Simulated scan of single mutants.
Amino acid sequence: MERTSNLFKTAFILPMMLAHVVSATIWKLMFSPVYGILNNILMMLGYNKVNWTADTDNARFAIILVELWGSTPFCMLIFLAALKTVPKELYESALIDGANRIRTFFGITLPLIRNFLALVVSIRIMDSLRMFDIVYTLTNGGPGDDTETIGTTIYEGGT
C-alpha cells in the first residue's frame, strides 16, 4: 500500500519538477495534429482531429491545460499543508454541535486556511504575469497574436 502511495505522490509531483520548456515541448508533441496522442485518442473515440495550436480557442485551451497540469501539484501541496494546521478538536466540537460537512467547511476549515489560500492566489497571479516559456514553446504567441502575453510581446520587441 505504501509503495502505491509513494508512486502516486511521485507521479503527482512530477509536473512541478519538470522545467516549463520541457513540459511545454512534451505537450506540444501530444497536441500535434498529425501524430499527437490526443488526436489519436479523439479518433479512437470517433471524433475528428483537432489542430490544437491553429485555432484561437483551442490554443488558449491548450495553454490553460498545460499551465494547470504544471501548477496543480504546488497548489495541492500548499493546501495539504494548510489542512494539517487545522486542529482536529474543532471538527470534533462541530460534530458534537451537530454541524454538517458544508457548515464545518465554511465555518472552520476555510477561515483557518484563508492565509494559505491568499498565498496560492498571489503566487498564481505572479506566475501568470510572467508566463512566457509555455506560450512561446507551445504556440509562439499564435495563431496570429491571439495567445500573446506580456513576456512574448516584450521578447518580440512589440509595443
Score class of each variant (00 low, 15 high):
Ile64Pro: 14
Gly98Leu: 00
Val121Arg: 06
Asn115Asp: 14
Phe105Gln: 14
Phe8Val: 04
Gly144Asp: 05
Arg130His: 13
Leu14Lys: 05
Ile113Asn: 00
Leu42Phe: 05
Ala11His: 02
Asn48Ser: 12
Val86His: 02
Ala11Gln: 08
Glu156Asp: 15
Phe12Asn: 08
Thr147Ser: 09
Thr153Ala: 15
Lys9Thr: 00
Thr53Glu: 02
Thr109Pro: 06
Met17Leu: 05
Trp69Cys: 02
Ser32Leu: 06
Val120Leu: 01
Phe12Glu: 09
Met126Thr: 13
Ile134Val: 10
Lys88Val: 08
Ser71Phe: 08
Leu129Trp: 15
Asn58Ile: 04
Pro87Cys: 01
Val21Phe: 10
Val86Ala: 03
Leu83Cys: 02
Leu90Ser: 04
Phe106Arg: 11
Thr10Gly: 05
Ile37Glu: 11
Leu112His: 06
Leu68Arg: 14
Leu65Met: 15
Leu18Phe: 09
Tyr91Leu: 13
Gly157Ile: 00
Phe116Cys: 06
Leu80Cys: 07
Phe116Ser: 08
Met126Gly: 15
Ile64Cys: 15
Thr104Pro: 09
Thr85Arg: 06
Leu83Lys: 01
Trp27Lys: 08
Asn115Trp: 14
Ser93Phe: 13
Leu117Tyr: 03
Leu45Ala: 15
Gly141Met: 02
Asn100Ala: 11
Asn6Ile: 07
Asp146Glu: 10
Thr104Arg: 15
Leu14Glu: 10
Asp145Ile: 06
Val121Thr: 05
Asn6Val: 02
Pro15Asp: 09
Met43Asp: 12
Val22Pro: 08
Asp57Glu: 11
Thr137Leu: 05
Leu7Phe: 10
Glu67Gly: 13
Thr85Leu: 04
Leu83Phe: 03
Phe31Cys: 05
Leu138Val: 03
Tyr136Asp: 11
Ile154Leu: 10
Met126Ala: 15
Arg130Gln: 15
Leu45Arg: 14
Thr159Trp: 09
Pro73Glu: 03
